[in-house]
């Protein structure tokens, strides 16, 4: 019996759409699996940065949600093997920056580096006993630009390069802000009396609603 000849090219061409459909479906599920594995676990750490910067739980949740949605849309741009948290923090910082501008909380040109460049004359030793409340309340008193680099480098363990990308500033600026910020932090840490200001468990979040505007 004569067998019907089907060109391999036509065969592939005919099957291509269904193959693409299957591949697309597989790619989508793979992409979601990758996103779920790589990105979702960072949500709690993103939240605490957002909470620190926004000083309000609802706003912080909005920021994290926007960050995650943006990350989902842009996940194809994420390079596996690179620091996912740094990538997410870069998105988060951009969103926070946009929100600040929309709320009129930012100013066009102001560089606290210049203003306080020479105001760290003496760096005292670090006190032996430090409570969480003391450390957070002292950090909260620093200018926002110093808070940002300290949180990214000291708390989130981002490299200078990653912090520079997240904040869209040169690496040298990250280094100088980190140096001055840490020095100011040490200068302002109380030597004997604990600082009261940052709420501990159960305290009202309203006490956090200050500082960003003035500090910028």
């Amino acid at each position: 019996m004569a067998q019907e000849f089907v060109s391999p090219v036509l065969e592939v061409g005919w099957r291509l759409p269904s193959m693409m459909k299957q591949a697309n479906s597989r790619n989508d599920s793979d992409a979601w699996a990758g996103f779920e594995l790589e990105v979702l676990p960072h949500a709690p750490r993103l939240f605490r940065i957002a909470m620190w910067l926004e000083r309000n739980r609802d706003d912080a949740e909005d920021v994290v949600q926007d960050t995650m949605m943006q990350a989902l849309r842009s996940f194809h741009r994420f390079q596996p093997g690179t620091n996912c948290r740094a990538w997410l923090i870069t998105i988060l910082q951009r969103i926070v920056s946009n929100r600040r501008r929309a709320k009129g909380r930012s100013i066009l040109v102001s560089d606290p580096d210049d203003r306080i460049a020479h105001t760290v004359p003496f760096v005292p030793p670090v006190p032996q006993s430090l409570t969480d409340e003391t450390v957070l309340a002292t950090l909260e008193r620093l200018p926002t630009v110093f808070q940002e680099v300290i949180i990214l480098c000291d708390v989130e363990d981002l490299s200078y390069k990653e912090a520079a990308e997240a904040l869209a500033i040169p690496i040298g600026t990250v280094m100088s802000r980190l140096h001055r910020g840490r020095a100011q932090l040490r200068t302002q840490l109380p030597t004997t009396e604990p600082v009261v200001g940052r709420p501990s468990a159960g305290a009202s979040e309203n006490t956090l609603n200050k500082g960003i505007g003035e500090a910028s």
Partner: peptide
């Protein structure tokens, strides 16, 4: 001293209840 301060910051952020989602 600097390392202590860094660890204190790390720990404070990990433990502060109002910073957790």
């Amino acid at each position: 001293g600097r390392r202590t301060l860094r660890r204190a910051l790390h720990g404070a952020f990990d433990r502060a209840p109002d910073l957790q989602p």
